[in-house]
């Protein structure tokens, strides 16, 4: 299985496309302690990372399956398809998530209207009861459908919620440390992410508790270029507080499909849009 596929021409085109930003960031990194524009520059990396991870293309679809392994090595599975449409780059987004596995979740659907800086609107459809429930905003840092992945990991954490510091620039990664502006609102005291300098994808993120020890770690891997967008095909979330880990495998990604806004409506909860969900 090919991991970290990067053909030379792709690297080249990306390097060209991102040349300006990369140059800026590299310059910043070499003497970042003395650079007056340091905050702005680290923000630029964070913004690009946010766009690369959550806003690739104007819309997208992806099939995902999760293998959830608990501390006693017992395994559960989830399989679903995600449709996404950006309303504004880096801002509002619509998500539709439709489950196919396990049988208990079959036909369950989430509709999310994400609004960075505000609470999301979320609906949940339960097919057995033909019930369309609206979900209170709540804590976004809780388990997504029983996995070690949080809701916030699926739809992205608001980049305005943290302060950032560029710690180090290596040959291919930016090492950025983030601390929450409201420490009481989250379970972590800080996190460190390693952002790929070519793709701007956050490849590793480690969350620390108040004692400074890492208890949660996200890793992305097997990045492939799909429709021009670097896309991790695997993700793994390990959490010592919960015990165990979740592996996520993606397939069937496509971008810029021209998914109409009407797909992200209540109609799709009851009648999942087969032409967009299927391949």
């Amino acid at each position: 299985m090919a991991h970290e596929t990067k053909t030379p021409w792709v690297s080249l085109s990306l390097t060209l496309a991102l040349a300006a930003a990369t140059a800026t960031a590299t310059a910043t990194a070499s003497d970042h302690n003395h650079e007056p524009n340091h905050d702005r520059d680290v923000m630029e990396i964070v913004e690009r990372a946010n766009l690369a991870a959550y806003y690739a293309g104007a819309d997208g679809r992806s099939e995902a399956r999760m293998r959830i392994v608990d501390a006693r090595e017992r395994t559960q599975t989830r399989q679903f398809t995600i449709l996404r449409k950006d309303v504004e780059e880096g801002g509002k987004q619509h998500y539709l998530v439709v489950f196919s596995r396990p049988s208990e979740f079959r036909g369950v659907a989430f509709l999310v209207e994400k609004r960075p800086g505000d609470d999301d609107d979320r609906w949940l459809y339960l097919p057995d009861q033909d019930l369309e429930r609206r979900i209170a905003p709540g804590d976004k840092r809780t388990s997504f459908v029983g996995s070690h992945v949080f809701y916030e990991d699926v739809s992205g954490r608001d980049i305005q919620d943290d302060e950032y510091e560029l710690l180090e620039v290596t040959d291919d990664r930016y090492k950025i440390r983030a601390t929450p502006k409201e420490p009481g609102s989250v379970e972590f005291a800080a996190y460190t992410m390693w952002v790929d300098r070519e793709t701007y994808l956050p490849m590793t993120t480690e969350y620390e508790d108040a004692a400074g020890s890492v208890y949660r770690r996200m890793e992305s891997s097997q990045v492939e270029i799909i429709d021009g967008h670097p896309t991790p095909l695997r993700m793994r979330m390990e959490d010592h507080n919960m015990g165990g880990y979740t592996e996520v495998q993606f397939r069937g990604q496509e971008y810029d499909l021209g998914i109409p806004a009407s797909v992200f409506s209540q109609r799709s909860l009851r009648n999942p849009p087969r032409e967009w969900l299927g391949r």
């Binding site: 390693w194 490849m203 890492v214 890793e219």
Partner: peptide, 17 residues
């Protein structure tokens, strides 16, 4: 896994995929 991520030694994390 990933020489750049997790600093060196991986802090005892199990990187088994």
């Amino acid at each position: 896994w990933g020489a750049n991520g997790g600093d060196d030694g991986n802090n005892g994390w199990d990187n088994d995929w």
